[in-house]
Computed example of a mutant assay.
Amino acid sequence: MGCDGGTIPKRHELVKGPRKVEKVDKVAELVARWFYCALSQEKLRRPIVACELGRLYNKDAVIEYLLDKSPDKTPMESASHIKSIKNVTELQLVDNPAWCGDKESIKGDKYDDLQCARFICPVVGLEMNGRHRFCFLRNCGCVFSERALKEIKAEVCHKCGAPFQEEDVIVLNGNKEDVEILKKRMEERRLKSKLEKKSKKGKTAAAASQPEPSADSPGPSKAKNGKDSANSSSGENRQIIFTKSSENGNPSVPGKASKAPSSTKRSIADSEDKSEAYKSIFTTHSSAKRSKEECSNWVTHTAYYF
């Protein structure tokens, strides 16, 4: 069973040493991150979306992941931070004119150039194959190379003209340091949105709890009108008092109590300064008095009985 017939075993065949660390092929890693969906592991196809951490997904894969409410759903580390479709941004990508597609390498008899990417930067022209750092704007979804954003500094998107800030720039497939920075920004952004929603709910609840002014309750304008009417009525009363006292021959100043005794009521028929035509208007005049024989036996709404 071995060691016979002149076989000479070596040391590494008899003694087991420490395992060698397997090195990951950098080209294969770049292809997996830039050409395949991080959720479904399928080839990226439009529409392509990116999360707030800079990972690339197929939009239909994200929708299927969000719609799957089954209890035996396998947790995905690459999509655990995606809670709704609002957490991803659809990317506005520019096609590479030098990319021929997958038609040439279907049979496997031709060389597949992995350095040739499907999309490029619209400003500098660099290919989006993982060799260069690329970013996208969270407001509009336009994708540029980091070199283009550094060389051509502007506060407006180079492609669509939408304004953006430094916090809106998200690095695609960044390193660990970039992912940590983006994660902090994402948490701060979500906390801020929650606080804004709570404040809006508190304002709406306070507005709903306040009683609405009813039609019967007098408002400020009605209160003012009531004061004006009271002042006007008091002025009329004062004017009436003044006229009555002046008729008796004791003029009094409005607002001051008159010392003269109160005047007795007199009928208009006894007044001498009134004409007979004026006196005939009232029921106290002799022409308005009729005997019972002259009165009819039917009753009207405003009948007078003397």
Rank of each mutant, 00 (worst) to 15 (best):
S221L: 11
C140T: 06
K183N: 05
I152C: 10
S221W: 08
S193R: 14
R138P: 01
S221C: 12
A230I: 04
V179N: 01
V143R: 05
M186Q: 10
A148L: 05
K203Q: 13
S221Q: 11
C140G: 00
L172G: 02
L182M: 12
E166P: 02
F164D: 05
A205K: 11
A223Q: 12
I152K: 10
E188C: 07
K200L: 15
T204F: 03
D228C: 09
V179L: 11
K159Y: 12
E188N: 02
L195F: 08
I152V: 03
G226P: 02
S199D: 15
R147Q: 13
P163F: 07
K201T: 09
P220D: 12
V171H: 09
R185E: 06
K159E: 11
P211Y: 00
I181D: 03
V179T: 14
C157R: 01
S233C: 03
E167V: 13
R138W: 14
K203G: 06
R190E: 14
S209E: 11
L149M: 13
P220L: 08
H158Q: 13
V169Y: 04
R147T: 09
L172F: 02
L137R: 00
R189K: 12
K227F: 01
L149Y: 10
V179Q: 11
G174C: 00
D178L: 08
P211C: 02
V169D: 06
V179F: 09
S221Y: 08
D178V: 05
E151I: 09
V169T: 04
L195C: 09
I181K: 13
K203W: 13
R185G: 03
N231E: 10
I170C: 09
A208D: 04
E212L: 00
P163K: 02
K153G: 01
L172S: 04
E167Q: 07
K192Q: 15
A208T: 14
P163N: 11
V143L: 07
E180K: 11
K192T: 02
C140R: 02
K194I: 03
L195P: 01
K153D: 02
C140P: 01
S209R: 12
Q165E: 14
D178H: 09
P211N: 00
K200P: 03
I152G: 07
N231A: 07
C140A: 04
S193M: 15
C140K: 05
E155H: 07
S232I: 11
N231L: 14
Q165L: 05
G226R: 10
E196R: 05
L172D: 01
R189D: 14
I170G: 02
C157V: 07
S229V: 12
